[in-house]
Design a protein around this nucleic acid. Structure first.
Lengths: 196, 196
DNA sequence: TCATAAGACGGACTGTAGTCCGCTAAAGAC
DNA sequence: GTCTTTAGCGGACTACAGTCCGTCTTATGA
């Protein structure tokens, strides 16, 4: 690995400008109605700058979500139970699903962008890996006879932004989704029927 | 509902030409490397024609998948068990997941296109609804205390093409995915641990 | 067979994502 | 302060998705 040279002053300035401009335009006009040209213009930089730094539309969305996701990551790694360490695995899984759904619901449009990369960006970015590792460990601890790695992907799959959005559009509310997901996760992890 | 006028001769001719051209180019160059201009040219029709008929890229992919999906649909509706009626619900669910994964694996690129619509095309198209209704009924029959509608979506989520593709790329093989999915579905539906 | 209307055709046009590369400015050495 | 290196800059450029609308084809029925 090479030395990670410090970020140059102009680079930092422009990075912040772009993020700020993107956030402003996204909330003003809605994520879908903002072109990267517009963001570049609003930020007062050239389009090339936006692309060099963020790669593509998805990369920009990821960067904007980063802060929010890091909050959740921190709570999981070192926060209080049930999200953080200390609670029983199943409880932690349920807490995570709940918290993630909240996050997702607040930023659906942005998540959709971040997952809509030409090719599965979602599964390459850091936070997905963290969520996956987290669930994988908890599953391993609860049902060691399962393929924890795969099962973690299965548990994350219903958190896809496009599904969430589609369900929203067909009238689902957050409460129902949370309840449904909790029920299936419980069932999956405890392997025991739960009376209603 | 209005009378569904018969398809005009030129329309039919062009529809077939486009589908044929698309299939040829997709297999020749790979789905990602074919533009709709190219398909129109290859089919000897104008670009407008392609779009009028199929709406967008996703629509074309859906049309190409249609035949294959209908095969599976037929087997489910009126074929022999365990896919068709007659087998116990849980068995039918497992059979469906297995068959769908086979289908998906054979046509990942096309499925990715069909699901990559700007906005969740996947959840609007007819076949998704059929799979969903099917699973929903089977779940209802097995675990009536669950929210069958939502749980069906959860079971379908891991069949997303982009996840399948990502797992493939990180070394998963079809057998492992099938086994994992069967295990989670069993666990979810029977609510009973299963020794390996 | 011809008139007519419903509908399809197709290519020019628009807007956007993403690339490229000659130019500029920052940072460190002296 | 000046020189040199190196990263960053930005806008012209390419290619593609998707729209629009004037023109042409088909089906119909008299």
């Amino acid at each position: 690995m090479g030395e990670p040279r410090p970020e140059r002053a102009d680079a930092r300035r422009n990075r912040l400008r772009v993020l700020e401009a993107a956030e402003r335009l996204f909330t003003e006009r809605g994520v879908k109605n903002v072109s990267l040209d517009a963001i570049a213009a609003e930020a007062g930089v050239g389009k090339g700058t936006v692309f060099r730094r963020f790669g593509d539309r998805a990369g920009l969305a990821v960067a904007l979500l980063d802060e929010r996701e890091q909050e959740l990551q921190a709570k999981i790694i070192s926060g209080p139970p049930p999200l953080g360490p200390g609670a029983p695995p199943v409880v932690r899984v349920l807490a995570f699903l709940d918290a993630y759904l909240d996050l997702l619901d607040r930023h659906v449009a942005l998540f959709m962008d971040s997952e809509n990369a030409s090719d599965g960006a979602r599964y390459r970015i850091g936070s997905y890996h963290l969520w996956h590792r987290h669930l994988s460990h908890l599953i391993e601890a609860t049902r060691p006879e399962l393929d924890a790695d795969y099962t973690a992907h299965v548990l994350l799959a219903p958190l896809a932004a496009d599904l969430h959005n589609a369900l929203r559009e067909q009238g689902y509310n957050l409460t129902r989704m949370k309840a449904g997901l909790q029920a299936t996760a419980t069932s999956l992890l405890s392997g025991v029927h739960k009376d209603r």
